[in-house]
Simulated assay, not measured.
Amino acid sequence: MPSLACRILVNGQPEGAIDPQDRGLTYGDGLFETIRFVDQKAPLWPRHMRRLQDSCARLRLPCPEPECLWQEAQAVLHGLPQAIVRMTITRGVGERGYALPATARPTRIVAAFPMPALSVDVYRHGLRMRLCETRLSMQPQLAGIKHLNRLEQVLARAEWSDPAIAEGLLCDGDGRVVSAIMANLFAVIDGALVTPALERCGVSGVARAEVLAIREVQVRDLSLSELWQASELFLSSSVRGMLPVRALDDKTFLPGPVAHAMQQHWHALGFPMELA
């Protein structure tokens, strides 16, 4: 098993290979989960597994047993006190063409990466964002799912190279706010906590689900004009946690009490306190 930048198992085998005809490569036919581990524990594991199972059902894709995925995660995590595990599930190899194989034989890829460095300043004072020109396509059948096609996010992230800007804001084709490129978005507007509805496009993040479970949140369409009037913005990410926004283009914000409370909750779940 590789021991440098990442460690990978393919269908449980350290020397496994991906067939060039795998539908994950040819059609993006699959899903993935990106899970943060601390001391080989994953505080949001149940939420990741629920989303994976629900998404597999929506795509009519056989879902691996959570216990199998857990054991493989533990294998690739060995010796990494903090790590990110990416679990990729494809429909496997099938006959040429878009038709579903009569019998799917999914490919399972489990890879561990060292946890990237996180800036204390970002957690204390917030990050900077920009509004992206790239728009998300509306496809209700895929909305919420973390499917393998991330080309819209790739194009959005290619819009800037300034290292001072950490994230981009994505809207749909009608100009409604959807999310950040790598995170979900929350705004405090007129004292109410709001997050964009994701029935048309976007990814329903597990950190977002955690916020919805413990706070009263309005889940609805959100316009850019409303967003500019927010008193507080923050992002939720299963990898990076709860991140205040200090600026969106020329509009500045101050980290507020809601983001701070969510950071405290994040720490209580078992994640390190980056503010320390």
Rank of each mutant, 00 (worst) to 15 (best):
Y123S: 03
I181D: 03
V154T: 09
G173W: 14
L227R: 11
P114K: 02
V120K: 15
P255M: 00
D190M: 02
T252N: 11
Q21R: 11
V206A: 05
E159L: 03
L193I: 05
A230T: 04
C56Q: 14
L44A: 03
G79I: 06
R240E: 03
A164T: 15
F271S: 01
G94I: 02
V217Y: 11
Q53C: 05
I8N: 08
T195N: 07
C63G: 02
H267M: 01
R36G: 03
A111Y: 11
V211S: 04
A42T: 09
A259T: 09
M138H: 05
T90I: 03
Q82F: 12
L222H: 06
F113E: 04
G28M: 09
L100W: 13
A197N: 13
P81H: 12
L275V: 09
S237E: 03
S231V: 01
L198A: 00
A197C: 10
G79R: 13
P114N: 01
Y123W: 11
R86F: 05
I214S: 09
L77V: 07
D39Q: 15
L222F: 13
W228H: 08
V245A: 02
V206F: 13
P114I: 00
P257G: 00
V194G: 06
L198E: 04
Q139E: 05
V10F: 13
V219H: 09
W70A: 00
A164G: 15
I109D: 08
H267R: 08
E152M: 03
S238D: 08
L31V: 06
A17Q: 15
G168M: 09
G12S: 10
S137W: 10
Q141W: 08
A261M: 08
Q229S: 10
L198N: 03
V76A: 02
R130V: 09
R135H: 02
R23I: 02
F186H: 08
E152S: 06
S161Y: 08
F234N: 03
R86I: 04
W160M: 00
G202S: 11
I165G: 08
T252Q: 12
P272R: 03
P101E: 02
P20I: 00
S204R: 15
L193P: 15
M182D: 06
P20A: 00
R130H: 12
V219P: 13
Q218E: 15
A102N: 07
L170R: 07
F37V: 01
S179G: 04
R124F: 07
R124G: 02
E33G: 05
A156I: 06
F32Y: 15
G202E: 13
H147Q: 06
H147N: 04
V217S: 09
K251M: 04
C56H: 13
E226G: 05
D162C: 04
K146H: 06
N184A: 01
A261N: 11
L224H: 07
R176L: 11
P2G: 01
M1W: 14
G205H: 14
L77K: 12
W45T: 02
A261K: 12
E274C: 01
R47F: 14
V211E: 14
L193R: 10
A143W: 10
Q40N: 13
